[in-house]
């Protein structure tokens, strides 16, 4: 078995008997990286809580870069995000940071999707490490395979399932640009009922305006 085959074999074996970090260490070793950071980039509302799944980066670096990495991923346009998925990119780390004396001043970022989750793997390298782009692309898929087996990582919080079928129906008509009056006509209920549904949608999604509720629904693939 060649190196790549046995890496996948070991990773799979790790999954059945080990803790999450064991596999992440294997991934790091295969990539030639020194430390890893695994974050969820799709938890908009939970941004301040636990979007970082697991990491052995020096903690000050996590604090300095963690949120901004996830933020910049969220600000990227959807098309570009799709084109970048599973593709390693590199980002320079501010060299003035004295923490980095033994780290290379560039980190590798690999966005990937596993099941419902959108994630980001950030790798830090030692100063003298030699990078293999080929291996980093293997890592993108291998990490997706590996993490998808941990439901606690890839599960989504289900605010969506709270919405009733009628509410989703209203929401999707609003997304098509219909007004309350038109929706009332389309689904055959009164305008006030439509408005009640919409108020209830905004309460459930925590949106302040109709626009935000529609934006939320499109992002979450409800409509």
């Amino acid at each position: 078995m060649n190196v790549r085959g046995s890496f996948l074999h070991d990773l799979e074996a790790q999954r059945t008997c080990g803790h999450l970090t064991g596999g992440m260490d294997l991934i790091c070793a295969y990539a030639g990286a020194r430390s890893y950071l695994l974050a969820r980039t799709d938890l908009y509302s939970d941004r301040h809580h636990d979007f970082i799944v697991t990491s052995n980066w020096p903690f000050n670096l996590v604090r300095k870069f963690g949120a901004s990495l996830v933020d910049s991923e969220a600000r990227t346009s959807e098309v570009r995000r799709c084109l970048q998925a599973f593709e390693p990119t590199f980002q320079d780390i501010d060299a003035s940071d004295d923490l980095l004396s033994d780290y290379a001043p560039r980190m590798c970022l690999i966005p990937f999707n596993a099941g419902q989750a959108r994630m980001l793997l950030g790798l830090l390298f030692s100063k003298d490490a030699s990078l293999s782009h080929d291996r980093l692309r293997d890592v993108a898929l291998a990490t997706a395979y590996y993490t998808s087996h941990y439901p606690e990582i890839v599960s989504t919080n289900n605010t969506l399932s709270d919405l009733t079928v009628r509410e989703v129906e209203c929401l999707s008509w609003i997304g098509e640009g219909k007004t309350s009056d038109e929706i009332a006509l389309i689904i055959g209920i009164s305008r006030n009922t439509v408005n009640n549904y919409i108020t209830s949608i905004m309460n459930k999604t925590g949106a302040k305006t109709r626009s935000e509720a529609v934006a939320f629904a499109v992002r979450q693939r409800i409509i």
């Binding site: 346009s77 959807e78 098309v79 570009r80 995000r81 799709c82 997304g175 098509e176 640009g177 626009s211 529609v214 934006a215 499109v218 992002r219 409509i223």
Partner: peptide, 8 residues
């Protein structure tokens, strides 16, 4: 808004 998000 809906179209702009879908188009990215």
């Amino acid at each position: 808004i809906a179209k702009a998000i879908r188009l990215g």
